[in-house]
Structures are given as C-alpha cells and as structure tokens.
C-alpha cells in the first residue's frame, strides 16, 4: 500500500509516492470511481521517458478511454505487469496492487508542483471535478 496520506497528487487524478529518487504512480480512488470498470490499461515500456503532466499510459473502460499522465518527469523503471493482466486491480486497490508504474525521477523538485493529500481532498470536493 502506498498510503494516500503519503502521496502527492496531480489535477488529473494520478498519485505519486516518492522514495529514494523513484516515484511509484497510480490513479486515485476518486478517478477509479469516475472511470468505473477498467477493462484495459496500456502501460509504458521500461526505459520510456516521461514528462510531468504528459500522457504516459492509457486507461480504458467499456465506454471511454482516458489518459494517464505522468505525475513526474523521468524514466520508467518498472511497469505493473499484474495490472496489465488484471486491469480490475486499479478499481479494487488503486493505491496498492493497482499501481501503474515506477518512474526514476529526473527532477525530484517537480514533486512540489503536486498537491498533498489534504489539498487533493479539497480539490475533488469542488463541483467542477464531478
């Protein structure tokens, strides 16, 4: 589990859990509710470059396709094969087994651009997010 309280958040509902220069990334519980049943995720390849707030993966439900934006810039160090095989993990455990990828950060300072847990909780209460 990457405890939600210890994560940082994008405005597009991705979380990042940073530890030792590597950020684990996934989607928030709010996002998985909005998307509803996830049927497919296209994960980035190991070694792919990411850029903060730019698409690095795709999430499909039955009726929609959504972009997954990288919460930080860097290089993909790992992708969650278990999620690729069973996309429902992102619904069942968005902060645990449903993580998307691990990114070796090129600029850890970017984490400051993200919201903390409290700010994100406020953010999703705004009506525009619904």
């Amino acid at each position: 589990m990457y405890k939600p309280e210890n994560c940082k958040y994008t405005k597009t509902h991705e979380w990042a859990f940073a530890e030792g220069g590597v950020a684990v990334a996934g989607i928030t519980d709010f996002a998985q509710h909005e998307i509803s049943d996830i049927v497919f995720v296209e994960l980035p390849k190991i070694g792919a470059k990411t850029e903060q707030n730019k698409r690095c993966a795709v999430i499909e439900s039955v009726k929609a396709a959504s972009d997954f934006n990288a919460p930080v810039s860097g290089e993909v160090a790992a992708a969650n094969d278990a999620l690729a095989a069973n996309p429902a993990l992102a619904n069942q455990s968005p902060h645990g087994d449903g993580w998307f990828c691990k990114i070796k950060m090129s600029n850890p300072g970017e984490l400051d651009n993200l919201m903390d847990y409290a700010a994100y909780q406020e953010f999703i209460k705004q009506p525009a997010q619904h």
Binding site: D37, V39, F40, E60, S61, V62, P87, A88
Partner: peptide
C-alpha cells in the same frame, strides 16, 4: 437475452 456484461466481454 437479458442485459449483458460488457465489462466482462472487454476484460
């Protein structure tokens, strides 16, 4: 047939 499981079909 009754209402269908589209999620299962796609997964």
């Amino acid at each position: 047939v009754k209402r269908l499981d589209e999620v299962g079909a796609a997964r």
